[in-house]
Design a protein around this nucleic acid. Structure first.
Length: 257
DNA sequence: ATGGTTGCTTAGCAA
């Protein structure tokens, strides 16, 4: 079973790239973020032609998440289902082949003095409560997406530039540690121990050619699944060529069922 | 310190 997570930075700007990549990479489940379209504008037909079901939580202009899958998705839910009235489409979940998949687009936060960072903190707090509710011992779980957090120094190319920012600071690395301590393992780091491995590179200042990136897109899995993963990679080819997203897909393979 | 890029929308926000 091949799983991927990819922040597309607009599914309209990336539709051809996404479709070509689906044919070439042939993932079984794809967690998408920043689709930036309402459900009415989502390219359901083209994706169906490539052999995928799509569960979509859309929003105009900003955010937007989706789950693509070879097999049908059951029990689809969107948002956290909590008491907060939140218009931002950042979380979708479904049961696929007996696994609870969640695609998340964690708020960026802009800067640590911003109201957007307050929202990021609150959103993450709601995510923990959501995970407590949705997790059951019987169902393996995989939560993937753009977390907008680099978990470790080794996940940041330029520490001087990024230390203390919303993407890499003690409070945010503690969030990743708390997720891991709750039994959600960082699948990429099970298989890749090296440095200089990133999933996002700024469009500006030759970020990608200079490999000035951060590893902020993650696949986290409960132990039953994490232990069955066989590979984890970043598909750097998707950051190359004409009109790439600023994120590359992160891919994991596992023996399932 | 500023600016550098992209997408959506059409001047300015978000990343």
């Amino acid at each position: 079973m091949k799983i991927a997570t990819w922040n597309l930075n607009s599914i309209r700007a990336r539709e051809v790239r996404l479709l070509d990549w689906l044919s070439r990479a042939a993932p079984d489940v794809v967690c998408l973020q920043e689709t930036k379209v309402t459900e009415e504008q989502f390219p359901f037909d083209a994706i169906k032609e490539r052999g995928y079901h799509a569960a979509v939580y859309g929003q105009k202009t900003y955010n937007g998440v989706a789950l693509l899958s070879r097999d049908s998705a059951e029990d689809v839910t969107v948002g956290f289902g909590d008491e907060v009235d939140d218009p931002q489409a950042r979380c979708i979940s479904a049961l696929i082949q007996g696994i609870r998949f969640i695609s998340v687009y964690v708020p960026n936060g802009e800067n640590v003095d911003s109201e957007k960072y307050v929202y990021k903190q609150a959103w993450l707090s709601r995510l923990f409560k959501y995970l407590e509710r949705v997790r059951t011992s019987a169902t393996p779980l995989m939560i993937s997406g753009d977390f907008n957090i680099a978990p470790h120094e080794d996940d940041v190319a330029n520490i001087e530039q990024w230390s203390g920012t919303v993407l890499f600071n003690p409070e945010m690395t503690a969030v990743m540690k708390q997720l891991q301590d709750s039994g959600l393992h960082d699948v990429f780091r099970i298989h890749q121990k090296g440095v200089g491995l990133y999933s996002w590179w700024d469009y500006r200042q030759l970020g990608f050619p200079k490999n000035q990136g951060l590893r902020i897109d993650h696949i986290l899995a409960t132990p039953d699944l994490a232990g069955r993963t066989t590979t984890a990679t970043v598909d750097r080819n998707e950051r190359k060529g004409s009109k790439p997203s600023d994120h590359a897909p992160v891919i994991a393979e596992l023996t399932w069922p």
